[in-house]
Amino acid sequence: MIELLGIPPQALFGQLLLGLINGAFYAILSLGLAIIFGLLNIINFAHGAQYMLGALASWVLLNYFGVNYWWALLLAPIGVGILGVILERLLISRLYHLDHLYGLLLTFGLALIIQGLARNQYGISGLPYTIPSQLAGGQNLGFMFLPNYRGWVVVASLAVCLTTWFVIEKTRLGAYLRAATENPTLVGAFGINVPRMITLTYGFGVALAAFAGVLAAPIYSVNPNMGADLIIVVFAVVVIGGMGSILGSIVTGFGLGIIEGLMRVFYPEASSVVIFVIMAIVLLVKPAGLFGRTA
């Protein structure tokens, strides 16, 4: 068997794939955070909790209603997105005239409530979610074994990320959105309903998080705390990438996932902190972030 730097290729590519999957989640979540921040000017601390809700919703749909994975992939983001719209209308929309930090505090409180309720109902031990039969098994690629489901997660999240990028950068709707990010008053003067756009944007960002949650359900077991630790890493990803560019969020997310995966092969002790170390370096060298616009 060939070895690269003393590491068997099976282990190396296995960890790379795992890194790619983590990177996919970082990308989708930081994309959602960036879109929400662009228009609402708040950091959605509840993003991790909403990701968890997506996973939990798919589990509930399967176990209580017999709804399969594919329908859950559609229904869970819609459901969680609607919940997001309600939260935005009821609570978040009342804070826009205040300092941005109040939005952070509010969504932190919401995250605590959502996680607490989930923990009360489902406990903290993970709920297993079986891989849908169409994606069970895997391919032997010669240099590594690729489980079908993991390949699907990477493809699906890339597709979602690129579609989002296309809609925002290349369509008329996206042009409105970008214009409203720059100057909401002017866009409103052209007869576009900006408050409704803000609400729908929040709903969409939340739905993205829930979509990532459904993708994650069969890989990680579904548990109420699955989003809490992840979202802090995603915050670091956002600081590294800066929130100025959609493509930047996607590239940073995948890139950092891969670096984390490589770290797990070559220096496992540091794998959990490598993203934070990179954040420190980026803060020193380019404080606005790799793709950030203003300092």
Binding site: L91, F108, G109, L110, L112, I113, G116, L117
Partner: peptide
């Protein structure tokens, strides 16, 4: 878990 839920509620009420 109720402690967490109540803390979350206090956050929301304080901010709002």
């Amino acid at each position: 878990a109720w402690v967490t839920i109540i803390q979350g509620c206090i956050f929301v009420i304080s901010v709002m």
